[in-house]
Amino acid sequence: MIVITAPTGQIGRQVLDIVLGDVLDGGESVRVIARDPSRLAPRVRERVEVVVGSHGDPDVVDAAFAGADSVFWLAPPNPRAARVEDVYVDFSRPACDAFKRQGVRRVVGISALGRGVPGNAGLVSASLAMDDLIAGTGVGYRALTLPSFMDNMLRQVEAITSQGVFFQPVAGDLKAPTCATRDIAAVAAGLLLDHSWSGQDEVPVLGPEDLSFEDMARIMSEVLGRPVRFQYVPVESFRDTLTRRGMSEAMAQGMADMMTAKDRGLDNAEPRTPAATTPTTFRQWCEEILKPVVLA
């Protein structure tokens, strides 16, 4: 039995699709935890067991993890949380209790690069604390440690389309890894379907290349056939924009602290290895994902 949390989210949805594709001929049963099952595609609802509710609810996770061998764990975003720790560590406590109580053998979790880097990195630091909490249960654990997502660029489609510009509080010439969510999902699904591993480790997912935001602007310009430029914004302005849009002060500060750490090279701390290099290039992602959205 594989249990998948956040099955309608950006990553969880793709994990679920890959897992269901692999178990098409039977053999592995799949269960999902969903607040709103109507958001699952009909073809998916027909093939999975659904536990309705939040995976932060003790009763929900206790029921969902009964008989489970492997769990995909993703703490969902909560932009109005009073503390960053609430989103990652406190949200995960009921699940950690259920891992032990229900005898779950393996957990694959979504986390971030940054282990061993000194200083507060906001959301990243909270993600790593969540990893420690899960590992402390004794369950087999693989934390997927991730840089920024290529797919985050979709949040700025309006500015890219109407103004030919995107914004970040990071130096434009800093080269760093990025990864596509579809590659994250592929790595996660592979681990969920592999019943041979045990113990605890981190699995970096670094994409195939290090690019700066200026590199990305050039690639987007070439793919879209129109000029796109990068605009640096001070981290204070970035934080203030988030609060104006409704994010809590604590979460906005957590985002700002994370981006400051990235600007100082957080995502470059992990050495690139063949095992950590996933296939989707930024140019390919722009051709297949960004361009159709911009031109729609």
Rank of each mutant, 00 (worst) to 15 (best):
F65P: 05
A66V: 08
A66N: 11
G67R: 00
D69W: 13
S70P: 02
V71C: 09
W73Y: 15
P76H: 11
N78M: 12
P79A: 11
P79G: 07
R80N: 13
R80Q: 15
R80Y: 11
A82L: 13
A82F: 03
R83F: 08
R83P: 09
V84I: 12
V87K: 06
Y88H: 15
S92G: 14
R93A: 14
P94I: 10
D97Y: 11
A98K: 07
Q102S: 10
G103V: 08
V108R: 03
G109P: 00
G109W: 00
I110M: 11
L113G: 05
G114M: 06
G114D: 02
R115M: 09
R115F: 10
G116D: 06
G116W: 07
V117S: 06
V117Q: 01
P118I: 10
P118D: 15
G119K: 08
A121F: 05
A121S: 15
G122T: 05
L123P: 00
S125G: 08
S127V: 08
S127I: 01
L128W: 01
A129F: 00
M130R: 15
D131K: 01
D131T: 02
D132F: 04
L133D: 03
L133Q: 06
L133M: 12
G136Y: 04
G138T: 08
G140C: 04
G140E: 06
Y141D: 02
Y141I: 03
